[in-house]
Write a protein that binds this DNA or RNA. Structure first.
Lengths: 117, 117
DNA sequence: CAAATTGTACTATTTGATATAATACAATTA
DNA sequence: TAATTGTATTATATCAAATAGTACAATTTG
């Protein structure tokens, strides 16, 4: 369900954050569905509970989940599903733009492509 | 001519590498043109000579420049490696645009992002 | 030729973000 | 009450990136 690439350059907390966001956007994780407890997920993934906690905190602050001590963490209502999708797409888009700039592609070329699609 | 964003998360050496690559692609840096000496560029950018040296080494290993002790570093004749990289970047870009459109992001939003980068 | 220039090599150290370790507390549930 | 669960805190470890300092080798310059 969740997966961490320990060889990757992107931090674990960021990978997990995006991972969960993606599962939300794909509706694999449905509204009000319970997420694994911090400690359990940490053991499952072989990472530190603090790292999972950090991710849950980030997700809650961005409105993707709601949490409560003793209760657990749960996927927030549907309205955020779209936001998750959009955010992921935009992140990917930003990356590709930066990469394009990095190899000398101009802004005009990119806009031309956008208009052609 | 060259620029480093010290607030960025991407390493200095990577920023400089991409920076130079971009200037080559844009033909701002022309074949056989001399690059600033390691020490000079380091002072100019306010970074360590070793970091510049690392970048020059990377650039040479990838065939973008040619160097010689006592002589300096120079832009290599144009290779088709650049074109390949551009092609890849453009393909990735197209994908991300289509995906963005798929989740309801507008053309205007994308262009706004492009302009902000 | 001598001095300056320039890329390279090397070791040591510092820095900052990330991650871990260990423990404790607070709120909820069973 | 006992277990569960998110949160908080402090300390430590880790690793890549960057810096500092020095020295060497090849080329150019005067």
């Amino acid at each position: 369900m969740f997966h961490i690439d320990f060889a990757s350059r992107t931090p674990i907390y960021e990978q997990l954050y995006n991972n969960i966001l993606q599962l939300i956007s794909l509706n694999v994780l449905k509204p009000d569905e319970k997420l694994p407890p911090v400690r359990i997920l940490a053991v499952d993934l072989g990472i530190n509970p603090n790292t999972v906690s950090k991710v849950y905190k980030m997700l809650e602050q961005n409105g993707y989940i709601y949490t409560g001590i003793g209760r657990g963490s749960f996927i927030a209502p549907v309205s955020n599903k779209d936001n998750a999708e959009k955010q992921l797409a935009l992140e990917e888009f930003e990356k590709s733009v930066k990469k394009s700039y990095g190899v000398g592609i101009t802004k005009e070329e990119l806009i031309k492509i956008i208009n052609s699609l």
